Amino acid sequence: MELVYSQEVLLKMERRNTKTFTTGEFATYVGVKKDTLFYYDKINLFKPAGKLLNGYRYYTYDQLKAFSTLHTLRKLGLSIEELKEYISSEDKYKLVQMAKQQTVTVEKEIGKLLQIQRFFQQILSTEEELKHINVGEVYVQQMEKKHIHLSTTSLNTGMNTVEEWSDQYKRFAEQLSLQIPVPIGSLLTNDTLIQERFERVDALFSYSESETEHSRPEGLYAIYYHKGPYSNIESSYRYVTNFIKSEGYSIVGHAYEEYVYDLLRTNNEEEYLTKISIQVKRH
């Protein structure tokens, strides 16, 4: 006599032979929310092993590795569409192709994170530096060589207005492929300083952690912190250059402007703080 079992009985018999999970149990085991499993089922990305007559889903141990692979790829940044394509593909090299694509994406993300890290490190180091200076005083000190990125502005033309500076800033940021704001300073050449054309800027620069074509040379620098609007900075340059002459130094390099406190820190121009560093040597 042949025995006939209902689907539910068969599933129960199967469940006794194979360890199964409810949706909640499986979600807890793999470390996701139940809603994630429901969503994956709905979009046909990852479906349960089966359903009982009451409609409840169940999952098996055999599915753990498949889900782990899927979830790992998801956490690595693959989109739902890419995952569907991967699952449905019969190409055994598909994962290798995806790895190549994702490597490029990850490298870009690492670059962005490094920019963010340098941005905040610069804020912290500058704040520490300010604890040891008096605004309005000129300091002469040895500074180490630092690699810089330099804008392509013509040194003959220069930037004499806020509009020219802003336009060059935009182009320079694009040249650097910046994904976040980073400190960008202004450079006045040695010739500009000697001619006392303090109203102009010759180029823009940004410090670099890696070796570049340009650098701020190692040497002695006269350092001054200009407080107040940029429109008043000419008077600070005259004060510093007069100090350099009176103390027996001569200007032998460029001036580097770094914007310590700017619009990012305060809306009050009277609180702006600009660090001016001019390379000098003693007679």
Rank of each mutant, 00 (worst) to 15 (best):
G158I: 03
Y61M: 07
Q97P: 00
M98S: 05
L178R: 05
E144Y: 04
I251M: 04
E8D: 14
E174L: 11
L130N: 14
Y58K: 07
K12V: 02
E234H: 12
E127S: 15
R171F: 12
L204S: 02
V135F: 12
R15N: 08
K245R: 12
L155S: 11
I194T: 10
T192Q: 15
M159D: 10
L193I: 13
R282L: 02
S125L: 14
K170D: 12
T18P: 00
A66S: 10
D91G: 01
D35V: 11
E257V: 05
E211D: 07
T103R: 11
Y239M: 13
Y61W: 06
G136L: 08
T18N: 11
E269S: 12
T105R: 14
L70I: 01
S166A: 15
Y224E: 05
E8C: 02
K94I: 03
H149L: 08
S246T: 10
N232M: 09
T36Q: 10
Q63D: 05
E199I: 10
V30R: 05
S125H: 13
Q7W: 11
N54F: 09
I276H: 09
T69A: 04
I184P: 05
R16Q: 15
I110P: 03
L83P: 00
L78Y: 15
E25T: 07
E196W: 04
Q168S: 12
S125V: 13
A203W: 05
E128L: 13
Y225Q: 03
E211G: 02
T189G: 07
S231P: 03
Q121P: 06
R282V: 03
I278C: 04
L10E: 11
L155E: 15
K75R: 08
R171Q: 12
I116W: 01
N268G: 03
Q179S: 11
Y225G: 01
R265Y: 11
K33Y: 05
L10W: 02
G111A: 01
R238W: 07
L264T: 07
Y86S: 03
Q115V: 02
Q142M: 09
D202N: 14
E218F: 05
P229T: 10
A203G: 08
M98A: 03
I194A: 13
I233S: 01
R200Q: 15
L155H: 12
D41A: 07
Y261H: 09
L78E: 09
E270T: 10
Y61A: 01
S246C: 00
R57K: 08
Y59C: 09
R57M: 04
T192G: 14
E128G: 05
R118K: 13
G24S: 06
T20W: 10
M98V: 09
M159Y: 06
M1S: 14
V96K: 15
S231T: 15
D202M: 06
E137Y: 03
Y224D: 06
K84T: 00
L52Q: 10
L220F: 01
R200M: 14
V260R: 00
S186K: 06
N242W: 00
E81N: 07
Y169H: 00
I110Q: 11
T60S: 11
V138W: 02
R118Y: 10
L76D: 10
Y272D: 09
K51F: 09
I180L: 09
Y207T: 06
Q121G: 00
M13F: 15
Q141L: 11
Y230N: 07
V104Q: 13
E82M: 03
I251S: 04
Q279C: 01
L130I: 11
G31D: 06
I278M: 09
N134E: 15
N134G: 08
Q141F: 02
H149E: 13
S186F: 02
Q7E: 15
Y239P: 04
